[in-house]
């Protein structure tokens, strides 16, 4: 195994990530305004911004789903129990002992088992919960005649808010975990440049060098 700097985050992948960062930040901020946690901007403006940004994010997600499916990148997110316990034990215990992170990124598997599980849950439960309730909430006018007394709207809105806080909690954990291991900057850099340290088999390295040399960064070659 050789650790090389390999381009694992394609341009689209990074665009997806950072526009999602911006969208979610705006959605959390305007969402908090709509539910009355602050009044930095007028309610009506907050609703409009929240709606437009949410719709734009949905369009992005439609492209993402297409991209994940056609490129096979979806496999990255299939959860696996292999190494799960070790990673969990590291965050609960080893990190305080200065141990090395037990997981090393591989070419087809850049997420550790805990990450894969977290992202799987995010994509399959939390994000659908938020956009399904969000669309139902937005389109209440189409079904309000079935909802005298607004009981269903109450449920939809409350689930939407709860899911919103869950996303906010995810963001907190996500950002916090960047500070562990190689440090915050080292963890953010790959999402900017696209290159991350990956353990390559000799076959993978040989393949990339001949077929996709652009994906191999000149740095870290010596270390191999």
């Amino acid at each position: 195994m050789t650790e090389r700097l390999v381009k694992v985050y394609s341009r689209f992948n990074r665009l997806w990530h950072w526009s999602q960062v911006a969208s979610i930040a705006i959605l959390l901020f305007t969402g908090a305004r709509i539910m009355g946690l602050h009044s930095v901007l007028p309610f009506g403006l907050a609703v409009m911004v929240h709606t437009v940004v949410a719709l734009a994010l949905l369009v992005l997600w439609a492209f993402v789903v297409f991209w994940l499916m056609t490129t096979g990148a979806w496999r990255q997110f299939i959860p696996s129990l292999d190494g799960f316990v070790e990673v969990a034990r590291y965050y609960a215990w080893g990190v305080f002992r200065g141990q090395e992170h037990p997981y090393h990124k591989r070419l087809g598997r850049r997420l550790n088992p805990l990450q894969a599980f977290a992202y799987f849950a995010l994509k399959m439960v939390l994000l659908p919960a938020i956009w399904i309730t969000g669309l139902a909430y937005l389109l209440h006018g189409l079904w309000s005649h079935l909802d005298s007394g607004d009981q269903w709207l109450w449920l939809v809105a409350n689930l939407h808010i709860l899911a919103g806080f869950a996303v906010a909690a995810f963001v907190v954990i996500h950002v916090y975990l960047l500070t562990i291991g190689h440090g915050f900057r080292a963890h953010v850099r790959p999402m900017l440049t696209g290159f991350d340290r990956v353990d390559l088999t000799p076959e993978q390295e040989a393949y990339l060098e001949t077929e996709e040399p652009g994906r191999l960064h000149p740095e870290l070659r010596a270390k191999g």
């Binding site: 305004r33 809105a157 806080f165």
Partner: peptide, 9 residues
């Protein structure tokens, strides 16, 4: 929305 803090919030 915004009138009071409900259960979900």
């Amino acid at each position: 929305p915004g009138a009071k803090l409900t259960l979900g919030g």
